[in-house]
């Protein structure tokens, strides 16, 4: 719950001046933190709602697909993103039509991230080539950078834990790494909003 308040506060400051995709992501971040909090509370009470987790993942990948679709005008990349989104929707439909797969050990959960990683790298690189303002003052860079850090390290640690390293003692370390990565991404998003706020000062008096 910790990042949701500063993200809401700093995002609210620049809410009216956000570009469409930044606004979509901001709303998604608020939704995401609140939803995850709900999932954590219910799981601590012994209720594991797999359908809710599944629905969340579909929303997450749909939002990320939409963002990368909007950021990449290249037709081929857009087609890949659409296929990626369709696969997600298909697996979601597959799950909800009763063919209940054990989602927690299914490899596609991690493979999905490995499709998003090159997309994040490519988008960040494109931003660097196109941006005529300092990257460190560009909100898009901070959002894409935050996503890149989050997706790469999360996917890496999840794959390591699920398929490569089997030590039980690793679990708390993985959880700590994921926590740190989430905190780092949240800081990067907030920094992005602050950059937008600073940019607004240059216009008008």
């Amino acid at each position: 719950m910790l990042p949701v308040l500063p993200i809401f506060y700093y995002g609210r400051l620049v809410h009216s001046k956000m570009e469409k995709e930044i606004k979509i992501y901001w709303i998604f971040l608020l939704f995401s933190f609140t939803f995850q909090l709900g999932l954590i509370i219910t799981s601590r009470n012994g209720i594991h709602n797999i359908s809710a987790s599944m629905a969340y993942q579909v929303i997450e990948y749909a939002v990320l697909s939409l963002l990368f679709y909007m950021w990449n005008p290249n037709r081929m990349i857009r087609t890949i993103i659409l296929i990626f989104l369709l696969i997600n929707l298909f697996s979601w439909a597959h799950f909800f039509t009763g063919k209940n797969i054990d989602y927690s050990v299914t490899i596609d959960k991690y493979l999905r991230n490995f499709i998003l990683i090159p997309l994040s790298f490519l988008t960040a690189y494109k931003l660097a080539v196109q941006s005529k303002i300092d990257m460190l003052k560009n909100i898009k860079f901070w959002i894409v950078g935050g996503l890149l850090v989050n997706i790469t390290i999360t996917a890496f640690t999840q794959v390591m834990q699920a398929y490569v390293l089997h030590t039980r003692e690793l679990k708390p370390i993985v959880n700590n790494v994921l926590l740190l990565v989430n905190a780092l991404s949240a800081i990067m998003f907030i920094k992005g909003y602050l950059c937008l706020k600073a940019q607004m000062k240059f216009i008008g008096s």
Binding site: A124, A128, S131, L136, I153, F156, M160, V174, V177
Partner: peptide, 29 residues
Amino acid sequence: IYWFLTLVVIVILCLLIFFLAIMVKNYRV
């Protein structure tokens, strides 16, 4: 655990190098 932590550090270093490289690229642009 050591393997895992070393690999995480390597991933972070790769990310840092990538960010540094695109910063330089952006500076040139």
